[in-house]
């Protein structure tokens, strides 16, 4: 969470010079227990991923075939072991790295590309806007899961291609939100007032459009992180993303599904992690949205 809000500051405060605004957002966010709880959970998961080497009790790759599918609470295996006898706790801790990376990176890249496209289209307006947005709509017409699977499948299985296809999946929705908000802001009186005081197109985009548009887009993008994590897990589950033996929650869910009748609690663990992380991102994004509303 610290890294997320930190990056938001860099993106927005630099053009906006509105540090006062962000102190206000932080003040309001602090009073929202749900958002703070979600932020703490995300922070813990991020820390867990960052310091996996120091936290994990065992090697996540080394399995002991004699101790396969042990239940939760087995001595030496606090969260049991998987189908190859590897320590579940260690694999879950290491898995946070790839899962978070696959959740955040595509959204982050799509945030830049999508909002650039959307803001441009929205500000220019007219026919060019129609051309750009209808092209975007073509991509938007596919269900996101199908599009990601189709792109990954066409590009070939692999980590990089999975990232690429997820990025492509998230550009259209972000561009649409950016375009909608920009069109709205563009017709506001304060943009006309800025024109009346001699501001050029670039100055208006930099100050008034970015200042008012990046907030809502950023909040929306935060809510997409959970979707991205689930999609990434889905790709790995289908064998299109991360490959074994890499620890990644989606892939673990896939390989453990055969054990669902033997050790259901162990098999549910990766899914629980995905659930907890994505719902935390969603709750944080909700909190951010209300905290970023100035008129409170």
């Amino acid at each position: 969470m610290a890294t997320l809000v930190g990056s938001a500051r860099e993106i927005e405060a630099a053009p906006a010079k509105a540090t006062g605004y962000w102190t206000g957002v932080w003040r309001r966010l602090r009073r929202d227990p749900v958002a703070i709880g979600a932020a703490i959970v995300i922070l813990l998961i991020v820390l867990m991923a960052a310091f996996a080497e120091y936290i994990a009790p065992a090697d996540p790759y080394r399995g002991v075939s004699l101790r396969r599918l042990r239940p939760i609470g087995t001595p030496g295996y606090p969260l049991g072991s998987d189908e190859l006898g590897r320590d579940m706790l260690s694999r879950l801790i290491y898995g946070a790295r790839l899962s978070l990376f696959m959740g955040v990176t595509p959204v982050f890249i799509a945030f830049f590309l999508g909002s650039s496209i959307g803001i441009f289209a929205g500000y220019v307006g007219g026919r060019l806007n129609t051309v750009i947005m209808r092209t975007i709509d073509v991509f938007y017409a596919f269900p996101s899961v199908l599009l990601a699977v189709a792109l990954s499948g066409a590009l070939g299985a692999g980590f990089g291609n999975a990232l690429l296809s997820l990025t492509v999946v998230f550009i259209p929705p972000i561009a649409r939100v950016a375009e909608a908000v920009t069109t709205q802001v563009r017709s506001r009186d304060y943009v006309e007032a800025a024109r009346a005081s001699g501001a050029g197109a670039l100055a208006i985009i930099r100050a008034h459009v970015l200042g008012n548009v990046l907030g809502p887009i950023f909040v929306y993008a935060t809510s997409l992180i959970s979707v991205s994590m689930i999609l990434a897990s889905g790709l790995s589950f289908l064998g299109l993303g991360t490959r074994p033996p890499e620890p990644e929650w989606g892939l673990m869910l896939n390989t453990l599904r055969t054990a669902i009748y033997v050790q259901p609690w162990v098999a549910a663990l990766p899914g629980t992690m995905i659930f907890v992380t994505s719902i935390s991102f969603n709750l944080l994004s909700d909190g951010l949205r209300s905290a970023m509303d100035v008129k409170q």
């Binding site: 906006a16 509105a18 605004y21 506001r188 009186d189 304060y190 006309e192 007032a193 800025a194 024109r195 009346a196 005081s197 001699g198 501001a199 050029g200 100050a207 008034h208 200042g211 008012n212 907030g215 100035v294 008129k295």
Partner: peptide, 23 residues
């Protein structure tokens, strides 16, 4: 651009809408 604001400038009907809310 120099003329707008420098020679002639304008005040609007609804100041809440004509002032940017985030600054």
């Amino acid at each position: 651009a120099q003329y707008r604001g420098g020679v002639a400038s304008m005040i609007f009907q609804e100041p809440l809408l004509a002032l940017d809310p985030v600054y």
